[in-house]
Design a protein around this nucleic acid. Sequence first.
DNA 1: TAATAGTTGACAGATTTAGTAAGGCATGTT
DNA 2: AACATGCCTTACTAAATCTGTCAACTATTA
Lengths: 142, 142
Amino acid sequence: MRLSTKAQYAVRAMVDLSLNSAGRPVSLKEISRREEIPLNYLEQLFYRLKKGNIVESVRGPGGGYILARGSSHILVGDIVATVEEPLNPVACLDEGSEVCSRISRCVTHDVWKGLGERIRGFLDSITLEDLTREARGVSSEE
Amino acid sequence: MRLSTKAQYAVRAMVDLSLNSAGRPVSLKEISRREEIPLNYLEQLFYRLKKGNIVESVRGPGGGYILARGSSHILVGDIVATVEEPLNPVACLDEGSEVCSRISRCVTHDVWKGLGERIRGFLDSITLEDLTREARGVSSEE
DNA sequence: TAATAGTTGACAGATTTAGTAAGGCATGTT
DNA sequence: AACATGCCTTACTAAATCTGTCAACTATTA
């Protein structure tokens, strides 16, 4: 029941972006250095994040990425779902899946379905703004 | 964010066991046939389930497995945690892990911690009895 | 003592994941 | 126009994990 590093990196990178963008675009190079995430890997993640309308890119020298909307309107669940395709705990909850097998199928099916809903519900209850605010608090305490 | 088939199989097998044990032990062979789960794989699972004190074994002819306690006292979370070792969404929540890296660590750390608690909480809110009762209802409806 | 059934460890094939590499494209500055 | 910056995209590989198989062993009962 592990979350991929994609999701972990993506959330960390988004917090970093939100924290360090003072109106200007933030380059992946910066984020890569600060968060110690391989640049090429970040590029893959931001390619998806852009397609998911979570960030926008600014090309050319001095370019980089900016948030597509206010951080209070970006949910952690959005970020995770964008980079980690199937957030469902089991395969038969995905689109166009076969009917599950045998007797107790519907029973356990509902359990996994409920679990998936809880996971999404929790991640959707936290905004990027929440994390950014908390991060500011944490770093100023030490 | 997938649950392993181990966990899925284990829960299905436990429902089957609970449903078909009328006082007598149920052999893995039976469960394997009904649930279409490879026998050798089931053996591995029940080896763990026994060590986790969820089932007890009866050896010899006519032997098999029985529940270690009433089905209302067996939680789905128990079953899943027993066969799927780390139920934590990220590695740094496991025992004896290193400190996470860089700035936003504590922030995202708490998110994953909360997520893990929600997952466990949900799975612990469902008993084997719940599933068994529901399974009886489902099969009699068709 | 033979048959049944659980016990246990080793292992292999398939799949997924994490990360690397490399080249192309678009944009702004000089 | 040319160059530098930095995003965009595909392809690939090494490692880890997952799923399932094999095989031999031990305990129990008829």
